Amino acid sequence: MIKNFWLLLFFLGPAMAADPEVGKILRPVEGAAFPPGEISIIATAPGGKLALDGQAVPAEQPFPDVLLAKTTPSAGIHKLELIWETGRRQLRFFVGDHPPAEFKPFRQHPPSALECTQCHGLSRKGRFRFTGGCFGCHQQETFLKTHHHPSHVLEQCGQCHNAHGSTEKAHLILPSEKACGLCHSVPELFKRQMFSPQRRGGAEAGL
């Protein structure tokens, strides 16, 4: 019987594991703080439903598996949930003038209203996906002034940035030291910064 159990787990394990790419709350983010007023919610999940503090949130579905909603919560800490058949995600955010220390101001991106289709489109299989468009607003010529890598290394802006808004500087998905750590170890990153050509040039000039 034990042998059969392990065989069953071996074959069903991959199917039972949660897919990290399925079910995402894109706006807001965990720990976001908002002033009083209306906030927008963007999420994606197959057959997904939204709930705020345990109450269903009506949402539009303009594209397959995409949920858009607007709500005006009362002041205080709130729990937002995204629920679908095989999973659930949740986060907390704050509404009010004086957020607790663990909540940081949320900066929406893009700052003005844009159509979803400016950056997204339907694939041949009918999936709504990112098709590009960052450099439709951002200047590619200034990329190297604010990034340590050329654009061909960082082809996907979403590796480091949240295109729908963030509580971090430059709409990073994590604080800068943690975002860089997704690909680099801290010692490696320190070594690259200390011995970069720009750094060596400054040291040789006595700067």
Rank of each mutant, 00 (worst) to 15 (best):
G181T: 04
I39Y: 01
T44P: 00
V57Y: 07
S185R: 12
R127A: 15
T72I: 06
K145C: 00
K70N: 13
E204K: 15
A59Q: 09
P150W: 08
A101L: 11
F106P: 02
K191V: 03
R127I: 00
P105W: 06
P46D: 01
H98W: 06
P14D: 08
E204N: 07
L82V: 12
H138N: 10
F106A: 00
T117G: 03
A75Y: 02
P110F: 03
L114S: 01
H164N: 02
T146A: 13
R192S: 14
S176Q: 13
T142C: 03
C183W: 07
Q156C: 01
S166C: 07
I42S: 08
R124K: 14
K104F: 00
I173K: 15
R27W: 04
R92H: 10
I25P: 02
K3G: 06
N162G: 04
E115M: 07
G202T: 10
L122K: 09
L114K: 10
K24L: 10
A75S: 14
P105M: 00
G23M: 08
R107L: 05
T167L: 05
F5C: 12
G136Y: 05
E38I: 02
E141G: 02
A43R: 01
K104R: 14
R192K: 15
I83N: 10
L7G: 12
Q55F: 00
F135W: 14
G165S: 08
I2T: 09
L182E: 12
G47R: 12
T86A: 11
C180T: 06
A17W: 13
I39E: 06
L67Q: 03
K79N: 04
A45T: 09
L154I: 11
S176M: 12
V29A: 05
G126S: 14
I83T: 12
L172A: 05
K145V: 00
F94L: 02
